[in-house]
Amino acid sequence: MRLKLALALALGAVGWALPVLGHGVGMEHRRVSSVEVQARFETGEPMAQAQVLVYAPDDPAEIWQQGTTDDQGRFSFVPDESVPGTWEVVVRQAGHGAIATIPVSDGAGAGAETNNGTGEPAPATTEPSASSVISPNTTLSPVQRSITIGSVIWGFIGTALFFARGKR
């Protein structure tokens, strides 16, 4: 059975409001950026009371937070915005599992994702082999793009010169 993880990201500014005091009771509040996931089976049935494991991008081997989904398969958490990158939420139940990846930006809005979730420098790319099951990326290189663009432009110029030469 396939699983689906729907993701809702609620964003808000982080900041504390001044406490309100009355009869010796203190209360304060703050708005935070939270993430809500909802896990469902392919049938649409929610993954109720399923195990949830949250991993931070700076240490994807260690559980950052864990909990369970509610009866609707929902789970919310507040990622640490000082740890930008790809956060991961794993939901598991009865031998089935699904994973959601959530890019979280830092305060400056830059560097939202680490290269591989480990915080390590990106490793060099190895050449995908021709028989690989994984599809190779076929995007043009900058040199190939320049040659193509230049050739097309020259094609236009050549065509214009051809018709402009007149009859001799």
């Binding site: 490793p123 060099a124 040659i147």
Partner: peptide, 28 residues
């Protein structure tokens, strides 16, 4: 020019490195 276009076209069908242009390629 036609030869260059052909070369560029052939290159697009070959498996290429998939790292974004800005990624370092030194450490592996």
């Amino acid at each position: 020019c036609l030869a260059l276009v052909g070369l560029a076209g052939c290159g697009s069908e070959s498996p290429t490195a998939t790292a974004p242009e800005t990624e370092p390629t030194e450490t592996a």
